[in-house]
Amino acid sequence: MATTALEQELKEMIIDALELEDVTPEDIDPDEPLFVEGLGLDSIDALELGLALQKRYGITLESDAESSRQHFANLRSLAALVEARRAQ
């Protein structure tokens, strides 16, 4: 599956917001886990990512751990969240 423009935008946002050294957008596989395995992000990154989504797309995540886990599973699920919820 090709990377969409939104996915590309999110990759750049992740690298920028989380100050990922030596990571390029090409390094982020849209289907790989973002947290722990795959990209290897941690809990502080999750909070930082939540803040970035709020600032950039006006999305406020509910404090429901299970739904956040699904939204943050990988880049594709994150893109789906932004598509569905971005402030119009």
Binding site: L18, E19, I44, D45, E48, L51, Q54
Partner: peptide
Amino acid sequence: GDPLSPARFG
């Protein structure tokens, strides 16, 4: 009035 960066706080 902006929210704080959790990483920066930590």
